[in-house]
Nucleic acid binder design. Structure first.
Lengths: 73, 73
DNA sequence: ACTTTACGTAAAGCTAACTTAACATTGAAT
DNA sequence: ATTCAATGTTAAGTTAGCTTTACGTAAAGT
């Protein structure tokens, strides 16, 4: 599942550290999501969308036929 | 975290079984989400929203100050 | 040269999000 | 009354999301 968190983060001028702090998660979590290692939990995804003044579907792109794919690597 | 899946499901006239089949998950998963035992994964939440012709935030309601709350019971 | 800032990798551990299976309750047929 | 569909409960197992800690790299300042 693709996501545009990196673009949004840069657009807002946040470092991974800063974003992690805002969201109340670890920096590892930010890295892992940006790198596509795994998806955020639903509450975290909603918080992320709010932080970037948008909605979940605008940041996290689930392909039409993409069911429940495993995380990369 | 509150969710309106039960209302949407009934609005669409689906049984838990039917909805589970549509989403490709078990009936237990539907029950647990409706009962608030836990939140769906992000991809599942997006699928659910699509199934009900709406967006994630309209079904899954994260309170303003609601951080990462534990599931009930 | 060395410090700082930002980004990345790896590994071990905990808990949440699933699964399957078996059984209980309730309401609406017929 | 009993069948049947829909809903709910419990429990045990696997995997995904997240944490902490520690270390690696690379660019930019000073």
């Amino acid at each position: 599942m693709e996501n545009l968190m990196n673009q949004f983060r840069k657009k807002f001028g946040y470092s991974q550290d800063k974003l992690a702090e805002i969201l109340g998660v670890s920096r590892q979590t930010i890295i892992s999501i940006e790198k596509g290692k795994y998806n955020p939990s639903l509450p975290l995804a909603i918080q992320i969308a709010r932080t970037f003044d948008t909605n979940v579907e605008s940041i996290f792109l689930l392909g039409e036929n993409e069911k429940n794919r495993r995380h990369k690597k």
